[in-house]
Every structure is written in C-alpha cells, then in structure tokens.
Design a protein around this nucleic acid. Structure first.
Lengths: 339, 339
DNA sequence: TTCTTCCTCCAAAACGTTTCGGATTGCTTT
DNA sequence: AAAGCAATCCGAAACGTTTTGGAGGAAGAA
C-alpha cells in the first residue's frame, strides 16, 4: 500500500541501511547507487514516516505553540493570529512543523503544559498570552523543555524570550503627547499580571519625568486590557478630572473604549482630548478618527520566536533574548493635519 | 530520564503487555493490578509516546489544517483565524491535535499536499482558502486521504465539505436592499475561481428576478476579493452609471473599498448610496457608518469541519455535507435609524 | 608478499508502543 | 478423575526508521 524504505531496498537490490544512508545524503554510498535509489524512491512515490524517524531519533521536528484562551472572542485582536503566522512562516522555511495547543482554564486542570509537550513529542514550545502568575508558566520554565516566551522576560539554560522595548515604546507615545503640548495626561493600563503593563507604566513615568511634568498616580487606571472596562475607567477619569486632555492606553482595544467614553461626553478627538493606543491592531486605522498608536510587529515577533527556539534546539543560539523595535504611528486621534 | 511503559512494568512487577492493557482500559486485567499500575504511572510522571503509538497503530490522532497564503497581509481578514480557532476548539475537545500547513505558491512546487499529509502522518486534513483551479486540490481529492473542504462542494468516499448557503445569503442581502426601495443595485463580486462567487452572484440574480427588477450584467464587477480593486471598480461603476443607489459586495473587505470610493465622490452613505457586504469581519461594525453585512459564523464552520472530519475518520459520519446558516446584519450603511 | 587504507555496503539493535496467540491457575462440571 | 471454562497474565512480533560496528574488496605502500 504505502511504500517504505524496505520496498525501495528490495527494488534496488540493496539493504535498507544503504537506502536510508543514500536518502539522507551520507557519503559512504556510491553515487551511482544513490541515484538509482533516489530514482526508485521517486517512482514508488515514497515519503518517509516521520513517526518512525522521530521515534528513533528522539525528536520530532515539531514545535508547539501554546496560546491561552483561543476563544471565539479573542479573534478580535489578531495579536495571536499574527504571532501564529510569523511562527508558521519561519517554521515552514526550515521544514519544521507547528502544532497548536490552546489551553483553556478547564483544559489546564487535566493536563499540564509539560504533559502536553511530552506526549506530543514536540521538541520545544513557544508560549504566548500566558499571565505571569499562571502556575503552569513556572512549570514549563522549570521543566527541561526548551521554550521561548513572548513578552515575559525569563531566561535560563532552556528558556529564552522575545519582546519589544515596552518602556521605550510607551515613552515614544507620551513624548509625542507632551510635544503636542499636553500636560494632563491619563493612562489606562492593562492588568498587572502582564509584564508589559509594568513596562509601559514605567515608560509613561519616565517620559513625564524628562519633561518635568509631575506624575499623578490617580490619573492611572486599570483597564484590564478590555474595551468595556477601559470605557468605564475613561468615563470615571474624565468626569473626576476634567483637566485631562490626553489618554495613553496600553492597548488599542482599550483605546477604543476610551474613545467611546470621550464621545459619550460630547468631547471631540483630538481637539478636546487626544488618544494614543498600543499595538496597532487593524481596527486602529479604521476608527474615526484613526487611532495614533505604538506599532509592534507581531508577525516579526512570532517569526523571531520560532527562529530563536529552533536555534536553541540545534545548539546554535548565541543569545536567548531578542528585543524588537516599536514604531509610533501618528494618526488623527492625536493630531489633525489640515491641508 | 523519561519514563516508559517498561519502567512501569518493572516497578509493578508485571509485563509491559499488562501495563499497556491496564492503561488502555482493557478488561482482562485485574482491577487491583490496574490500580497499582495507574498509581505507579502517576508517580513516575508517565506520559505515553505518541510517536511510538502512532507508528504501531498507523494513525496519529492528528489532523492537518491546510490554508493557502497565510501571509502577513492576510491577517487583515480574520476568516482564516476564526476557522482555525473553531477547528482547534473541536479538535481539543476530542483529544486530537492540529498541525498547520500553510502553503505558499513557492512551497507548493516542492511538496504536494498529499506528500505533506503522508509525511507528517496526519489522519486527515481540512482545506481552507484553496482556489477551485488549484491543481493540488484535484490531487488531494483523488488521494485516499480523508479531507473536508471549506466552501468547495466536492464529495466522495473520502471527501466532505462544509459551507453556508451562499445563494440564500446573497438573496437576503439583495432583498433587503430591494425592500428599502433600491432598484439600481450594483454588485462587486470576488474572482471567479471561488465557488462562493458564483453562488453569491446567483443569489443576486434570483433576488432581482423575484422582485421583477431586470438584471444588468454591466453592473457586476470583479473586485477579486481585494479592497483596492473593489475601490477602483466602484469608482468606475459610479461614474459610468450614476443611477446606482446601492452596492452588494461579495466580501466586507471589498465593501470597505466601495465605501471609500463612494466617499471620494462626495456621496453620502446610506443616503445617496447604500452598501452591504459579506462575512461580517470585525472591521464591519467599526466603519463609519457601520457596515450592513451577511454574517457567517466562521468559527462554527471550522468547528463543524473538524467534527465532520473526525467523524469520517472514525467511521461514524452519516453525511459528508454540512451547510450552515447565514444571518443578515443590518447596520447603518443601508439604513439610518433616526431615534 | 604482507600490511594499510579507503570505498561500499550490510546485519542487527534500538526507539516505545500495541496486539496476537497462547499459558497458567483455580474452579466448576461431568 | 478428566475436562471445560473464566480470569489473569505474558512473550514475542510488528510498526519504519536510524545508527553502530563492522565486513569484504580493491588499491597502494612497505
């Protein structure tokens, strides 16, 4: 039915050893025999059985992409999808495979990440969207499964990470607002269980410090990375502190919420209140007005994560850390160009 | 290092056969021995080697998701992502795995789908986004690899498909426009290599026929499922046929293009020209004005596709065809509610 | 001639499972 | 006492590869 190496051996009149070595490019097989074997393999429409190969070599040339909460709703921000595309891109360039593990909270109780990885024999894993207080994060990091984390700065023998410079990214955004003359700037941050939240807050503070604008803690709200929550918080801030003329939001989704709140209060964007977000999701350029934001190239993050992981697997990684650039995209939510 | 069934056997003082059968719930092992074995397995932190299992059982409990052209740009419409999420959802419910194959045109030349599938030992595949003139579609369908197609109506012993009723979907959209009094309705269709294009065009015609509005072929343009192309075509149509008061677009992305064109000509939506799209992508509810569209539940399509495939694999599929519902979502691009 | 060396090739073990075809024991029937 | 049966267990083969440690010759060196 399905051709194996054995069939080729029989047809070519050689041993299976020779077939294996011929097909894998070893030098101890005569070039003429090799050609014959390759020819026969092609004729018989042979494709190697990766299961068998993986079994004996003890590696599968497969990496796992572990994302958390891949539900119907999460499709809204395509962060995960872009990461995935990037991972997929590199992985297919180097002839690896990617299998997707999505862990819902119920699922986690049954099987731990490490179990998942070991069972499916992935050589390594990329983790995305895991909260820093996730008990399983600890587990993976402590296991000996090579992995790279996205936006979580943990490093060890087997663990690396890729991230962007979130402090600088936030700084760029806030400097932009300051340059436009804003002094009363509020921030809607994500929940504290994300590394990026902490970093972006720091960037926010540092930028204010640079400009010698006092930092007021009461102008920082927790929007939990949710559109609705951010809207509520923005509403609260705007009514409580009417002097606010600008919002820096730690995600575009939250910026959308803030914009809704601003509009609800009958204020104009950006004339009365300016808004800048973070992520540059697709929606950002389609809102009215289009949203200024700090763009991070998530596709590249996925690509680099996969690259780093596979380099680690093959022992040629020089560093376990990769930090990517961000770019401030100025649109009309902060600055109206009349021309 | 890593525990195998053999270690358990040694620790429990039984044969590996017994361990295997105990762990797999066979009845010919004493309940006390089984408990002991399970206990030991847990203690030793055992997880079965799916490679070895797959090798001997000749199936991997893995399905492949074949998408075409998963590039950085395609992340814009999250169709693929939603399908993927749906597939992933079902697959993890029944303890299968999903591996993603994204085929770019260059990649296809090296390895055919069947080779990919056979090599990676997937039990079956789901194909999404493949054009009907793709030579490899033929190949997969003719191979004996079980697969289900998304939006391509081919059926055989090993092939099934899931789709929505695109004729009806289009009809709903056009009937809506007709009910609003529109008579000069243009259509921007996708390229002809998609099954859905043909279907949606038919729905368009049938709806007109019902209302006894003559069908004018020159009002149908090819937008190639691209935003820019659709914009150009809309521009051309609007200037050439100023009597047009409504557009039916075969995708939301193209509807976005049409809306741009309409705005460029200084016309208002929906007062001067109404627009209805297809897909209900996330952007649709965020445009100004929000876009009326025919929603198809892509998550459900993915979910059902995976379900169908796995039922086929396990021999319990009664039908190879699944047709899902669509829903017309009326928003302000067709009808402004003044209240 | 005898010893090396190089080039080709191969038999067999190993990877971790599942499964087939018994084997053993103790009990019940005849 | 012999035979039959149910319950419980196990040895060994099989799945399709890779790899180890050589074997067999031919050619060159001493």
């Amino acid at each position: 039915m399905v051709t194996t190496i054995k069939d080729i051996a029989k047809a070519a009149g050689v041993s299976i050893t020779t077939v294996s070595r011929a097909l894998n490019g070893y030098s101890d097989v005569n070039e003429k025999t090799r050609q014959k074997i390759i020819e026969i393999a092609k004729q018989l429409n042979y494709s190697p059985n990766t299961l068998a190969r993986g079994l004996v070599m003890n590696k599968s040339k497969t990496i796992g992409l572990l994302v958390s909460g891949l539900t119907r709703e999460s499709a809204k921000d395509n962060f995960t999808f872009e990461i995935l595309s990037g991972v997929n891109q590199y992985v297919s360039e180097v002839d690896y495979d990617m299998v997707l593990f999505s862990t819902t909270s119920t699922k986690q109780r049954e099987k731990t990440y490490t179990q998942l990885c070991r069972e499916r024999r992935v050589d390594g894993a990329i983790l995305q969207g895991i909260r820093i207080d996730d008990p399983y994060l600890q587990e993976v990091v402590e296991s000996d499964i090579p992995c790279v984390l996205i936006d979580i700065p943990i490093e060890s023998e087997t663990v690396g990470y890729v991230t962007t410079d979130n402090v600088l990214g936030a700084k760029k955004a806030v400097r932009h607002l300051l340059a436009l003359g804003h002094r009363d700037i509020a921030m809607i941050n994500g929940y504290e269980y994300a590394f990026v939240s902490e970093q972006r807050l720091r960037g926010f503070c540092e930028a204010l410090l640079e400009a010698e604008v006092p930092f007021r803690e009461q102008l920082v709200a927790d929007g939990a990375f949710k559109e609705e929550k951010a809207e509520q918080e923005a509403l609260r801030l705007l009514t409580g502190y009417p002097e606010i003329t600008a919002f820096f939001c730690a995600s575009d989704l939250m910026a959308l919420g803030a914009m809704k709140a601003i509009k609800k209060l009958g204020k104009r964007i950006p004339e009365d209140v300016a808004v800048v977000g973070y992520d540059d999701i697709i929606l950002a350029s389609y809102t009215t007005p289009p949203l200024s934001t700090v763009a991070q190239n998530q596709f590249a993050m996925g690509y680099e994560a996969a690259k780093l992981l596979i380099e680690m697997l093959e022992g040629k990684a020089t560093s376990h850390i990769k930090v990517l650039e961000t770019e401030l995209k100025v649109r009309e939510s902060t600055f109206k160009n009349h021309e």
